[in-house]
Write a protein that binds this DNA or RNA. Structure first.
Ligand code: SF4
Ligand code: SF4
Lengths: 150, 150
DNA sequence: GTATATTAAGACAAAATAGTCTTATATATT
DNA sequence: AATATATAAGACTATTTTGTCTTAATATAC
C-alpha cells in the first residue's frame, strides 16, 4: 500500500467535504456515517488536517469541519503530506535502502520515472477533481473492495 | 510503502543470491551477514521463497539456499507475489475502496495507467538485472537510507 | 447559567507487522 | 554412532498501525 489507511480516510473525507457547500460546517458524525468510518478514528484523522490548515473546525451546535480553501485549491498531495508526511517523496517506495543518487540500483531509472509520475499526479489532482465525479457508493462501501480488478 | 519490509528482505537476498554461483549453496547466515538482516527473520522469509520454488534449500554441511532457476528466469514480480501475495495486482494502491471497473473514481484512468507501468516493470526486471549492477553498499547499509532523494 | 452539541486530546485496546529465540529435522564428516 | 552444520517450524516478544473509549474544552440556545 502506497498510502496509510489513515491517509485514505483523510482523502475520502476530504473528497466528500469537497462535494458539500463550504458555507456550512459538516459534522464529523455525518462524514463518518456516510463513509462508514469509525467516528472517533475519523475525528483524529481530521484533526491532523485541521492542524495543517486544510480544514477548519468549529465546536458546538452547527459546528463541524469544512475545507479551509476552495476544493480546487487543495491538492491530493496536500492531504497525503499532512497525514503520511513526506516519506513518499523521499523514500524509495520499493523499500530498497541506500538511495538512488549515489548508488542507483538497476531499477532506479525506471522506478524513479514512474514514481515521479505518481507524485506529479498527486500534485495535479485537487479535491475538486475528486468531488466532480464523486460517487458515494465508490467512496463508501468496503464491500466492493474485494476481488475487483484495477 | 508499496512492498512489505519482509518482501524487501526477500528481494535483497534474492538479488544477492543472483550474484553468486548457482553451483553452490549459500548459507542464510552469509546472506544475513552481508545484508545486515536478522538471520532468523531472513530464514523465515526465505522459507516462503523456497516453498514457492524460487529457491532450493539444502540442510546440513555445505547446505544453504540457491536460486531454483537461472537469475534471468526469475522476475522481481515472482518474489513479490511469493511474499506479499497478489494484493498489489488486485487492490488499488491508493487504497480507495470500491474498485475501478464499476465505479471509477476521477483518478482511475491516470492511476491505473501508472500502476500498470509499475506492474510491467516488476514483471520485466529479473534477478539477473538486479544482480548485474549489483552494489553491495547499496543493498546493504541502511545508513544510506535517510534523506536521500529518489 | 444550564443543557446540549460539537471538536480536541489523550488513555487505552486490538490487530497487523516485524523480529527473536528455541526446538526439530536433515545431512555430512569423522 | 557421534558430532557438527545447516534449514524448518513454531512459540514467543516487540513495535507500529489501527481502532475504541472517556474526559476536556468550546460554542449555542434557551
Ligand atoms: S536506486 Fe532508486 S530504485 Fe533502487 S532502491 Fe535506490 S531509490 Fe529505489
Ligand atoms: S477508481 Fe481506480 S483509482 Fe479510483 S479508487 Fe478505484 S481502483 Fe483506485
Amino acid at each position: 500500500m502506497l498510502l496509510s489507511q489513515t491517509c485514505i480516510y483523510g482523502l475520502r473525507a476530504s473528497a466528500l467535504l469537497a462535494s458539500k457547500s463550504r458555507a456550512d460546517y459538516t459534522t464529523i458524525r455525518e462524514l463518518s456515517d456516510e463513509l462508514d468510518i469509525s467516528f472517533h478514528f475519523l475525528t483524529k484523522v481530521l484533526q491532523k488536517l485541521t492542524k495543517s490548515e486544510l480544514l477548519e473546525s468549529y465546536k458546538g451546535p452547527n459546528g463541524g469541519v469544512k475545507l479551509a480553501r476552495t476544493a480546487s485549491d487543495i491538492k491530493f498531495m496536500d492531504v497525503v503530506l499532512s497525514i503520511d508526511g513526506d516519506s513518499l517523496l523521499h523514500e524509495c517506495a520499493l523499500g530498497l535502502p541506500g538511495c538512488g543518487i549515489l548508488e542507483p540500483c538497476p531499477m532506479h531509472d525506471q522506478w524513479s520515472g514512474l514514481k515521479q509520475n505518481i507524485v506529479t499526479m498527486m500534485k495535479d489532482i485537487t479535491l475538486k477533481d475528486l468531488a466532480n465525479n464523486y460517487n458515494s457508493t465508490h467512496l463508501t462501501f468496503d464491500s466492493f473492495n474485494k476481488g475487483n480488478q484495477v
